[in-house]
């Protein structure tokens, strides 16, 4: 006898795999890997920390990993927004969820099963991207040097957060308005994440000491350059919690390539994202009850 969560996850995964949108996804993935492949063959100069340097093997790998992870992050968010989240809210709005919820199955079990299934689907998408990237790196750069699986795991966590918050918004506001809300939040996050703005508020000085997550944040707030500490703290919170920021994605790239992070709050965003998942699930469960489902 299999757990209802796993049964629901399997059902979700199967129904998502059978959709035609997968063809579009495969095309996107192919395009993404083509761009990454081009990055690995670049020559010339680039700007690193404000200095013009020749593009060496390290920069090429960093660019390819950054491009691929950024694309996976972006397309994964689009998938969540336009395919996975609407499938759950559609199930609730059409009453199909009733077939399951009239059984002795708790609402949180239903939500977790659906979330897990959608996440498996996204994880498969991310895994295909990672495998493709590894093949490219092996061909052009002698393989990835740091912890690609850990980087991939961080992206998967970010996807889980997108999904959980997407489920929450869709159940509270309906699939249309909920999707729009998530999209606006992601756009707001992208603005907050705009490189110039981020550096203005949160750049840690080059001599920032190594330390724990909290140490890094405290150091950035105390010693960062630019606006007053309070403004930087507010910005730091926005940077950490908005789903569209590239902070977690930056962390994933840094972990995968073994590079240091220049922005201290990148360390803090991941726990915030992870903590947001159960919060979103609990709130989504309340939304289901309120909608009499």
């Amino acid at each position: 006898m299999r757990s209802p969560i796993l049964l629901l996850a399997g059902d979700t995964f199967r129904s998502l795999v059978s959709r035609r949108a997968n063809v579009a996804m495969a095309v996107l993935l192919f395009g993404l890997l083509t761009v990454a492949s081009c990055s690995l063959q670049l020559s010339g100069e680039t700007v690193v920390n404000g200095q013009v340097v020749p593009i060496g093997p390290e920069e090429r790998v960093g660019l390819a990993v950054g491009t691929t992870f950024g694309g996976l992050h972006f397309f994964g968010a689009l998938l969540a927004l336009f395919l996975l989240v609407p499938s759950l809210s559609g199930e609730v709005e059409s009453g199909l969820a009733g077939w399951i919820l009239v059984k002795p199955i708790r609402r949180e079990t239903f939500l977790l099963g659906r979330l897990l299934g959608a996440l498996l689907f996204l994880a498969a998408f991310l895994a295909l991207g990672l495998v493709g990237l590894e093949v490219l790196l092996a061909r052009y750069a002698g393989g990835m040097r740091a912890a690609p699986l850990l980087g991939w795991g961080i992206l998967a966590l970010l996807s889980a957060a997108y999904l959980a918050w997407g489920f929450l918004f869709a159940l509270h506001l309906g699939s249309g308005l909920g999707g729009l809300t998530l999209l606006l939040l992601a756009l707001a996050g992208a603005v907050v994440d705009f490189d110039v703005i981020t550096r203005y508020f949160l750049s840690a000085p080059a001599d920032a000491p190594a330390g724990g997550l909290l140490d890094a944040l405290v150091f950035a707030l105390r010693h960062g350059e630019g606006p007053p500490t309070a403004a930087r703290a507010v910005y730091g919170v926005l940077y950490a919690v908005l789903p569209g920021t590239g902070n977690v994605h930056d962390l994933a790239v840094a972990v995968a390539t073994g590079r240091a992070l220049s922005i201290a709050t990148d360390h803090v965003s991941l726990p915030v994202v992870v903590a947001g998942i159960p919060i979103a699930i609990v709130a989504a469960r309340r939304a289901l009850t309120r909608r009499e489902m």
């Binding site: 629901l8 129904s15 059978s18 199930e91 009453g95 077939w99 059984k103």
Partner: peptide, 23 residues
């Protein structure tokens, strides 16, 4: 339920087997 809507894409057997396993 009053309005009997079924999921698109599933056959009768698949639908019933899935729900039997949920039980």
């Amino acid at each position: 339920p009053e309005v009997v809507a079924f999921p698109a894409g599933a056959t009768l057997a698949e639908f019933l087997i899935f729900h039997a396993r949920l039980l």
